[in-house]
Amino acid sequence: MSARVSAVPSTTAPSLSSRRRLGDRLGDGALHGLTAAAAAAAAALLIAIAWKIFDVAHPAISKYGFGFLTHQGWDVARNKFAALDFIWGTAVTSFAALLIATPVSIAIGLYLSELAPRGARTVIASLVELLAAIPSVVLGLWGILVLGPFVGQDLEPWLHRHLGFIPLFSGTPENAGILVAILVLTIMVVPIISSICRELFVGVPTELEEGALALGATRWEMVRGVILPYTRSGVAAAVILGFGRAIGEAIAVTQVMGAGHGIHWSLFATGDTLASRIAEQYAGAAGLQVASLVYLAAILLVISLLVNLAARLIERRFTYQRTGGS
């Protein structure tokens, strides 16, 4: 190409060859290379982590197979391991935490987006979000010092006295156990879900809200008839993200759940989740126990990835809805 260009007298034709410095010209390529490498590294790391987890878990996977997921018991002395107790503990604590956190978070989101005095909105919103900034180990300590004793000595006896006929509230009150873990997890996920909800509610077009109010609807009717339906799938995605946070939490749960075994209907019983069992035992483990703990980690990893994927799918549907789908 340069040969043909140079055939034209250079006095008349403008030069189209680059006049930038060499460094600048290399910059473009370097930027492309660096950013691509960073993106590739992130993807590669995910694969490397997953591969290593399944690799270390391999002895337990080949010994127990999928039966690991459906059997109970974790006996270090007899070298027998299974995951069902912890899957149960994870499911109960996470679902119950979401059950409490979802309505609370929606209420906070609505208050901050629709009802709170304008000046106070950002202040309260930042305070709620700061709750998410508390390190989980600190929250766990607070659970041991304050929440646990309150639950064991006041809340559980009260529930037992009035609602003891429900299996959930049978048994002996304890300062550590499933209920304390549920409450700690609730405190952790409320800021996440409520801040997403607030943004979703703020994002509802003013025209829609005005359209509802102009028909003679009250604020509550407008919230129920327009804001909540409009943001439904976004809220669902937020709840799923909160779920992902709850199932993965290890430290605070370890601190307050009491490292129990078995599957109990009573929320007063001690228990353990996948994450908290790994946190408790990994340091002193050996042999098959290590492989079994890492198998627990593999289960957790798969669930977390699926949960994240689900949140993404719902979010995409949500965007589609807002841009004109019906």
Partner: peptide, 16 residues
């Protein structure tokens, strides 16, 4: 507002 309805500049049907 129940007695005095309003139609806005931009059509604003509900997502229903």
């Amino acid at each position: 507002r129940r007695r005095i309805g309003m139609v806005f500049q931009k059509p604003n049907p509900f997502p229903k």
